[in-house]
């Protein structure tokens, strides 16, 4: 991959709300892959039911850190532990984190938590796997093909195609943070 293309890489994820059945395999795969401690999760399932009985509609969403383009957590981190890595992925350098929790307060999606070891933890888009050419654990395990991960700046990527061809939304666009997890509706 050329240096110019690497510099503009923008990792993103789509979640097809028409496919997701809320089986939580993504949640468990993430916990296993990233050794997330008991009682905590880096991603989660939201089931939202709207309407008035009997005219109801349900939406199931697999949610996680949105790796925002203008991430408030990174802006509010006083030690530089929260930072933007390859492809716009927002990471926390554990040994730089003092556990002040400013990033947790700043996150519009409540995607961060304090790891029992004292640092703030969250979804990494499994960058350690992506750098080896693998998919994030949640994407790899999803049995219904709900999740798609890729480079949104590459028009040939599956993520770009989905965002071009399907209607989509993001959670709380009013946050102004520029989330990069898109929900196909």
């Amino acid at each position: 991959m050329s240096a110019a293309k690497t510099a503009t890489k923008r990792y993103a994820m789509t979640v097809d709300t028409r496919q997701c059945v809320g089986c939580k395999a993504c949640v468990l795969a993430c916990k296993a892959e990233n050794a997330v401690p008991d009682g905590f999760c880096r991603q989660w399932i939201v089931e939202e039911i709207r309407g008035e009985f009997p005219k109801l509609s349900a939406e199931i969403r697999s949610e996680r850190c949105n790796h925002c383009t203008d991430a408030p957590c990174v802006k509010n981190c006083p030690t530089g532990a929260s930072h933007v890595n390859e492809g716009g992925v927002v990471l926390v350098t554990h040994h730089k984190c003092s556990g002040c929790k400013a990033c947790i307060a700043a996150c519009p999606y409540d995607a961060r938590f304090v790891h029992p070891e004292g640092y703030v933890d969250k979804c990494t888009f499994c960058l350690h796997r992506v750098q080896k050419g693998l998919q994030p654990a949640c994407v790899g395990v999803c049995p219904t093909g709900t999740l798609t991960f890729g480079d949104a700046s590459d028009p040939e990527s599956a993520v770009s195609a989905q965002l071009r061809e399907r209607s989509s939304k993001v959670n709380h666009p009013e946050s102004g943070a520029g989330p990069n997890v898109h929900f196909l509706v």
Partner: peptide, 18 residues
């Protein structure tokens, strides 16, 4: 707009939820 009837989440992270 329809009234929101129910929203459930499996997330129960300490410090964050509810």
């Amino acid at each position: 707009m329809n009234a929101l009837l129910e929203a459930t989440t499996t997330r129960t992270n300490p410090g964050i939820d509810p």
